[in-house]
């Protein structure tokens, strides 16, 4: 996993609440057996006017000029600004894969759905929670100023604006550690093999039917 330390990037505003994972990456793209290549189909149904299918050449498709990510001013954005309950719906990890492949490394919203939130950390994306008023203010700032950038610093847990404002955010210590160092969870867990084996023996003695 790619480490996340500091990010200075263009902010793209997606002004909708309850953006679900079906919207982030429609199901026809879930047929892939790979982890990469989902970026061109992120937000597919909003981003294009015609219907997308895996395997077709996206560069030949009809772009929806009204969709915010298609506006030239947000080209190259690496920070997604959005509203409540982002990432609700299915557990598909294709959603963070698509956002990452598109180029987003951080998301800012007032709240997220649990599974999506968790999946972000496993893929080197930092989902930041800021309160709704702050998010509102950021939407206005982005709107007002073409090329608006924010700096996200994971070590100090702050989001910093060009005019010197700094907003602190919370992040779980273990997740922060993994993200800062790009650590793979499996390797970390396997450091506790003995604990797992000990537990398993005890568990099997108590409920042998679980091991049939």
């Amino acid at each position: 996993m790619q480490a996340f330390t500091q990010l200075n990037g263009i902010v793209a505003p997606l002004d909708r609440a309850n953006v679900d994972t079906d919207a982030i990456i429609p199901k026809q793209f879930l047929k892939s057996i790979k982890r990469s290549g989902f970026g061109p189909n992120a937000f597919d149904e909003w981003r294009y006017l015609d219907h997308g299918e895996p395997g077709i050449d996206n560069s030949k498709r009809q772009i929806n000029p009204d969709f915010v990510l298609n506006k030239p001013r947000y080209k190259g954005a690496s920070i997604l600004l959005t509203r409540e309950n982002f990432g609700c719906g299915s557990s598909r990890e294709h959603a963070p894969w698509a956002l990452l492949d598109y180029g987003f490394r951080a998301i800012i919203a007032p709240s997220y759905a649990d599974i999506f939130f968790n999946n972000c950390f496993k893929n080197g994306i930092l989902p930041i929670i800021l309160n709704a008023d702050v998010v509102d203010g950021l939407f206005q700032a982005v709107e007002a100023d073409e090329g608006y950038k924010l700096t996200v610093d994971l070590a100090t847990q702050t989001v910093n604006t060009p005019d010197g404002q700094s907003y602190a955010f919370e992040v779980d210590a273990f997740r922060k550690h993994c993200l800062l160092n790009g650590l793979d969870d499996i390797g970390l867990t396997l450091q506790h093999v003995d604990d797992i084996k000990t537990f398993e023996i005890k568990h099997k003695a108590a409920q042998p039917w679980l091991f049939n």
């Binding site: 299915s90 496993k122 867990t189």
Partner: peptide
């Protein structure tokens, strides 16, 4: 509960889930 693909791999390899 539902888990993502990274966690699927994690459970396959360790029989455990990191969970709060």
């Amino acid at each position: 509960h539902g888990i993502g693909t990274s966690e699927v791999e994690h459970v396959m390899a360790t029989q455990c889930l990191v969970q709060k």
